[in-house]
Amino acid sequence: MSTIRDDHEVARDLAVEAGQQLMRLRERNGFDEPEVLRTLGDRVSHEFLFSALGRLRPSDAVLSEEGVDDPRRLSARRVWIIDPLDGTREFGEAGRVDWAVHVALWENGELAAGAVSLPAQGSTLSTVDPPWLPEERPAEQRLRITTSRTRPPDFVRRLANRLGAELVPMGSAGAKICAVMLGIADIYIHAGGQYEWDSAAPVAVARAAGLHVSRIDGSGLTYNRSDPYLPDILVCRPELSGMLLASIRNVADLDNAGPHAGA
């Protein structure tokens, strides 16, 4: 790969190649020792991506879930934010396809490029060619909210009950946001805390695809901060955002009011 390659293509190609390496690792090792497989997956993908970015973009900083945080990134103009294996639990389970590789570029305060590879699903969504978002969803169709398959937050359950929505359990945050882009779900909401690498790449692609992306109070998402922790996130079709933000406020108000609220 040439160092003059377009950033969008670099993000896509590196995510794809890392995903292919992870698929081969799964095939070679099998699933008899899932923790060993997960540890290998995190390490192999991180080492590949970190090395490739060092070669292709030597002047850029890197923030990786699996790497040591380099404080120089805070003064850098360009920072690659990567999650070498998002959905590590699912990666170590036979038959699971809801895991991903995230590669994003933050530049001058904004996400500039991104790619999410879903290797076990045989697809990659990226800012090279953002997915097409259907203009309308059927009005009679029940809303679908992607949520954690192992740790579904009570807040999301209460919101789903208020909206009469269906919960769609999945693993990786990237897989969940991609599900919204692909029309498998309508909403991804998370209020249990995550980190910048969990969402940077899928958020970059979701924005390019025309989805609404924000904190659950409607404020913007910011990246490459000194503390990479992100408390919450909302990704949805744009026409749903106003209704959802109002519903989220109502659920939060009831939570804050205590057990007798609404009686």
Rank of each mutant, 00 (worst) to 15 (best):
A52S: 13
G171T: 05
E110S: 10
E35D: 14
S241N: 02
V103L: 07
L240H: 04
S172T: 10
E135V: 14
T127A: 00
P58F: 04
V62Y: 08
R12F: 04
R157F: 05
G193M: 10
D217M: 06
T3Q: 15
R5W: 15
V36G: 09
M170T: 07
R157V: 12
V128A: 03
T88M: 01
I233D: 04
E135T: 15
E65R: 05
G262A: 13
N161C: 11
A120T: 06
L111P: 09
I189M: 03
V205H: 02
E135L: 10
R157E: 11
D129F: 14
V36Y: 13
V235W: 02
D154P: 15
I82Y: 03
A200T: 01
W106P: 00
G220R: 12
P202M: 00
D7L: 07
R43Y: 04
D13N: 06
D186Y: 11
L22G: 00
W80H: 08
S219K: 10
K176R: 11
A263V: 08
G41Y: 05
R38G: 00
D129P: 14
G122R: 07
G87W: 05
G30D: 07
A139I: 08
L40R: 14
A139K: 03
G164W: 03
S148G: 08
E140G: 03
G19D: 02
E110T: 15
E17S: 08
A175D: 08
R144F: 12
E136Q: 11
W80N: 05
A76N: 10
A175E: 09
P130E: 13
W106F: 08
P131Y: 12
P130G: 09
P169W: 11
E107C: 00
N250V: 15
P153C: 01
W132Q: 15
Q21D: 06
A246D: 12
R151T: 00
L22Y: 00
M170W: 08
D255I: 15
V36N: 13
C178Y: 09
E93V: 08
G19F: 00
